[in-house]
Write a protein that binds this DNA or RNA. Structure first.
Lengths: 193, 193
DNA sequence: AACTTAAGTAAGTGATTACTTACTTACATG
DNA sequence: CATGTAAGTAAGTAATCACTTACTTAAGTT
């Protein structure tokens, strides 16, 4: 158990509360109490509630994790590679669940700039998948690999969304593994046939 | 252009504002102004902000639409059937975009009862798909039809989420058609092989 | 003409919000 | 020992919030 700095304790408390009750649903007094600091300290460090919010988003963003995931792809058979990617993607989402909840509840207020960042990240994931697919595919003509990539990404993200966020199901790790490996097989069937 | 009742005008205004700025981010004064009524009228009709919110959810819920979608399935070839289901699902989501945005921004505060309603709806969709699949499938052993149903539902929902909510892309109807028909082919490949 | 209904206006309630000011305490470092 | 730093306390600001009261207006309906 590390001792967190005052600043970090406030960020952690704000992160959790914003993800649970949204930006407008959380008061600064509440954040301060959850962090065991006085509200004055919160304002001394962050100035305004909004800049605290920005610091939370900056500190807790999922984007570096996903960029790392793309970078760290290993060289296996196609099936192993897709399966390990699927797991990494799923568990990255799980570990960043609170961030994703904040993203969803604040999604309408995002600027062009933030939307563009997400756009590029999604494009990168799809491009990586297409690159992997095209290295291994047998003869296929009538299938657009980019659409298969979108489908793969979509299945996994939606599995996360349904189980972890909407229904809050306690699904076992082996069930997840089974579903993800089935998803990989669905994709493989579409690439090689 | 229909003339809406005062009550309906308030519900429409609240629906839009809640979907754009969330429950806590929207004030009753704002709703009244958007509906061109006095705030007093709003409270006379709905009593509290929360019961107005409940009326909005009741009136605008996506659930009856999805139940109708399940009921109205037609008898075509497997490919046609899945394709028309995919389109109906996608465009139902699009027409209920605001409702889905409210759902997402308020998802943490849902009760067991509401979660159960969604759980049952999702189960019904998957069961319908499994029933359709199993009527048409050729010999297959190593594939769990329920997982294929989840995959299909996930691809389509995620397409909607990415294009319509996260990135707000203006994607053409023919592009959607193309992607959805590709998704159907991915699924068909997994059922018959 | 009398009455009902659906709306409005004006004013104000107490609670809560983000944020500030002024002063204090405790501790670590030179 | 003196000083700087990071925190706290107490009190209060102006604005906004959901919601209320009291009274009025306009348009049917009986």
């Amino acid at each position: 158990m590390e001792k967190l700095s005052t600043r970090d304790r406030i960020i952690e408390a704000a992160y959790t509360l914003f993800s649970e009750k949204g930006y407008h649903g959380t008061s600064t007094r509440e954040i301060a109490r959850a962090a065991s600091v006085s509200e004055v300290t919160l304002f001394r460090i962050f100035g305004t509630k909004e800049s605290l919010f920005e610091e939370v988003l900056k500190t807790k963003s999922i984007i570096p994790d996903l960029v790392a995931m793309i970078r760290d792809v290993e060289n296996h058979s196609l099936e192993d590679l897709l399966f390990s990617l699927a797991k990494k993607f799923y568990y990255t989402l799980v570990s960043k669940k609170k961030f994703i909840m904040i993203t969803f509840s604040e999604v309408n207020q995002y600027s062009e700039k933030i939307i563009d960042i997400y756009q590029k990240l999604i494009d990168q994931i799809d491009e990586l998948l297409v690159k992997i697919f095209s290295k291994y595919k047998s003869t296929n003509k009538d299938f657009n690999l980019k659409i298969i990539a979108m489908a793969f990404r979509g299945m996994i993200f939606n599995l996360f969304l349904t189980n972890e966020i909407l229904l809050r199901k306690n699904i076992t790790k082996s069930e997840i593994t089974h579903i993800l490996s089935s998803y990989v097989k669905i994709i493989l069937n579409s690439i090689n046939r």
